[in-house]
Structures are given as C-alpha cells and as structure tokens.
Design a protein around this nucleic acid. Sequence first.
DNA 1: CCAAAAGTGTTCGCCGTACACCCATGA
DNA 2: TCATGGGTGTACGGCGAACACTTTTGG
Lengths: 290, 290
Amino acid sequence: MREEKLSDKDRIALYRQSLDKYKKPSVTADVVAVRPSYSELNDAQWRENPEFALQFLFIKRAQWPHKGAWAIPGGFIQPNESVEEGAARELHEEAQLVANRLIPVGVYSKPTRDMRAWIISNVFVSIHRCDELFSVKAGSDADYAKWLTLKSPIIANGQFSLSFYDGDRLEFKLTGSYKDQDIGGATVEKIDKNPLAFDHGEIIAQTFLRILALDTKKLVFYFLPEKFTLSNYIDVYQYLTQNSISFANIPSFRRQLTMTKNPILEVCKDEWEDLCGRGHAPAKLYKRKV
Amino acid sequence: MREEKLSDKDRIALYRQSLDKYKKPSVTADVVAVRPSYSELNDAQWRENPEFALQFLFIKRAQWPHKGAWAIPGGFIQPNESVEEGAARELHEEAQLVANRLIPVGVYSKPTRDMRAWIISNVFVSIHRCDELFSVKAGSDADYAKWLTLKSPIIANGQFSLSFYDGDRLEFKLTGSYKDQDIGGATVEKIDKNPLAFDHGEIIAQTFLRILALDTKKLVFYFLPEKFTLSNYIDVYQYLTQNSISFANIPSFRRQLTMTKNPILEVCKDEWEDLCGRGHAPAKLYKRKV
DNA sequence: CCAAAAGTGTTCGCCGTACACCCATGA
DNA sequence: TCATGGGTGTACGGCGAACACTTTTGG
C-alpha cells in the first residue's frame, strides 16, 4: 500500500481533510438542574414548612427563537472538554451552580429539533443536595434563571401531567404520554402541546421519568438535610413514588427503614432534638446509615 | 432592537454564520450488538448444547489507526437522521443487522479519545433476540465482522474481567475497575490495558455493566427462543447475574417464576414436548406470560 | 380534655431459603 | 440398577400489609 510511507501526522492531516468534506453538527451539553423545594430555607424555616417538591432550573429566553419561553441551561461544547465537563461548565456559567452528580438523560438529535441549525444536545440531570449553597444569579439583562416548582406530578397508565409553578403561579403544564419499555426504562412518547423552547418539554418529561427510575430509597437522601425525621423521609419518598405507600402502611414502612436486617437509616443517638411546636410527640432524628 | 426587522430566514442565516466560526466535532453513532451464543443453532442443535453465553459483534480494523485491533461498528451521523437512526443505519450497513432494541449506553467525548480528530461517539447497545435471523456478512476485504463470545464474565467488588473468545481461542481480555455510583448505576473507572481500538474497551465494559443493570428477569427472554425449559431460563439468568442463585435454592427460584401471584412464565400446555436424550425425566416447556 | 401526629405492638400471610424427596430416562 | 437431572413437598423465618394502640404536645 502507498499509505505505509505516511507519517502519523500526515495521516491525521489527510483524515481531517476528508472529514471536513462532510457537514458536522453543533453539539451542546444541556443540564436539567434539580433541587428540593426547601433548599433556600434554613433548618428552622424548614421545620415549620417541610412540604417537599422538586424544583427545576429554567432559563427565560430573551432572544429569538422561542423568545419568552422557558428553556434549560446549556451551550456548545468546546474542543478541549468532554460533554460532561461542558455540562458542568455551562451550569456554572449560566447559573453559578456547581454540578454535583451528573446523570445522563439522553441525546436529542432529531434533525428538526432546532430550526436554526443542526444541533445535537447531550442532556444531563444535575441533582443538587439540600445542603448545597444555592445562588442562582439574577442573570444578565438578556436571559434570567429561575427555579420552578413541580407540584404534585402525575405519572400513571402511560400518561403524565407535570405542572410547574413559580411560587403559587402556574407557569406551564406539561402533559403527554410515555411508554414503559420492556427493558431499559420508560421513555416519553408524545408531548401534547409543548410550552417550552425547542424540544425541552420532551427533555424535561424524560428527565423526570429518569429520576423516578433511580433507586428511590437512596435518592431521597439527596433531597434531605443530614438529619431528618422519618416523616420528612416519607414525605420525599411519597413525592418520588406517586404516594405509593398507603396511609395504613406507613408504620410498616418506618420499620422497614430502621428495623430490618440491613436498615438504611439510623437514629442520631447523641441528640434528641425537641421538634415541638406542632402539637404532637417529638420526633426522633435520623441520618443515613453508612 | 434592530433585530426585529429581520425575517426568520435572515436570522437563521445569521445564526449559522455565527456557528461556523466555532469548531465543530464530528459525531458518530456506534453500536454494541449483543446476541446469545446459540443464535445460529437450530432448535435441535440447541437442545443438545444449551450452554449460554453472550456474543458481541466486533469489527476487525484493516486500516490505520489501530490496524488489526477489534472495534465496534459505527460511523458518522448524517444531517437528516437522529443518532438512533444513524446507529440503526450503521449497524445495517456494516453488519446487515436490523436493530431491534437500541438502548443508550453513553456518550464518549474525551477530546483525546481519537488521535485523528475531535470525534464524539454516541453508543447504543442493540439487543438481538435468539429467534432473529443472523447473517453477518464476511465483510469487505478491508474490515470484517465477527461475533466474539464473552465467556464466564467476572464482575465483583469493583473489579471486572471479561474474556472474549472466537470459538475456543481467546481473542482478548478486558480487565479493570468499576464504581457503583450511589444513584444512576455502575460506571467503568479504569481499564487496565486496552486491547481494543480507541476507547472501545471502556465502551464494551460499560455496555456490559449497562446490560447487567437491566431488568434481568425480563432480559432473559430476549436471549431465549419462544419456548424453553426452566433449566434454559435459569442457565441464562445465572450468566446474567453472576450465578446469583445457589444450587440449593434453584427449586424455590423455579416456583418464584411460575407459582407466585404474578408469575412471569406459563407452561405451554398444548405441547409437552419430549425432551429426552439426556438421561432424565422430560422437562416442561414454558413461555413468557403476557 | 381533645385533636394531631409520632411512634409501637401484634397478627397474618406471602414468599424466599433450605433441603429432602420423587420421577423418568439412558447407559 | 444406578447416575443424572427435572420436578415436587414441606417447614421455617423475614418482612411487608394491616390496624389497633400509646405517647406527647398545643390549643
């Protein structure tokens, strides 16, 4: 073969030339940042108002296209970074958040998904713990970021309905259908009416399905402070499992967490913090068993 | 704003111009095709020799770089297709296989992963059922494809060892370490010594971890013909779960599959095929319960 | 004193564990 | 008739389901 004479450098140059003949996509790393609703409360405030919900970070678009629509943060990756690094960088640049635990959600690559150009998006979900410091910058005068609360999500029988609130005001509702794949988890099938920019509605729905597919009993810890009561744990667990535990079975569930052979919780013996103020017996504080 | 005067078409043109100033990666869709080892046997042959193992499809590289090394099939995606479509197309082009069930494995994007250029690979695993027709073309004179058998994989305590055979000949061994993420599954941490092209060693190891994380009881059906004996099922199950069922507990496992409230198997009542020839009582035939 | 909510005690039954045993066959 | 391997019987125990009950507080 004639090629044998070439140096590696030459080969690389030739190869790159051949690549440049083809159209290349632009590739982004997008992040769905998720945190518990009481992240910005201190411990005392939280004790007063421990209702749990998930919050998702959105960017309000100030530019064409989809001006005024909500979108998820993200941006083009650079030649010196992996998509994970790009995702972490974008999250930091756009929302001053430090990526804690990036979990892949999927690659969105339908040629028509962005009217502007051929853009492929790698999507990750970044799970933010309750005890992290949050400081989403108000944002430039162009786009701004905001945490929207996903209240009482409904996912059942192939249909989902996700309502996102800014405080008490409904920002948008995401409804559609999903399919339980035999193996490999559930996937979004169809979004009824996308209120978000680009295909971000599908992305958000898929992200939530992905979150629900994680190991719930462990995931709960990410949304709780270090020390918590059993009621706190159950509150989060119920949210993440569509209230899978009926009222009557909560006692068994408590035992399951603490009394079985390999309990995942243990009592904080040193302190028996008095959690009064709400007219009932004081609750024990638990922490994750290592 | 001045932009308000622009038509969408103009805006798109402007946007694309701005994009073209940045370096873009080349994006591939790669597929790890997996099938049961007895795919090319007929029913009778299979009854004689029902030992199960997974086979992975590899391409022998005939060109620089990594000439002579095994690699997984894949190629650049086109502007008119999604990465999933690209993966299916490449699998068909390179191995005449029809993608059955594409499950995402991950995105490989370390800038140094391909010495030739900035190439990002989206990897899927394609699970091929036992009853599919297989016809991997011998291949062009350049590259050729071959199914290699993963015999007695070992995955335990953060270490893995995967030996791939061509018939009885060991082709390569993949060893390294993995990490059990708290949430989101196990990930490959380090490959001891990569015998494959590019980072395909890491990809293969990660793919196998991904397969093991699927719902095993359902996954087993993908590697069995429609009708099978309980021993067949258990054979596959043991392979996929590292022989998790001890010898003594196999009777209970049988019952678990057939006698509990929601059994996943049912007897093929119509036929009680005589599975003699091996010196013991005939076995019942089962099929997946719908 | 009562309502509210945390936490405990107790019973029931499924099903996973363990192991003994039975059955049909080929050599 | 024996080894082989498929299939069944049975007893035990953990733990999830269900629900009654006790405890501590605020009003």
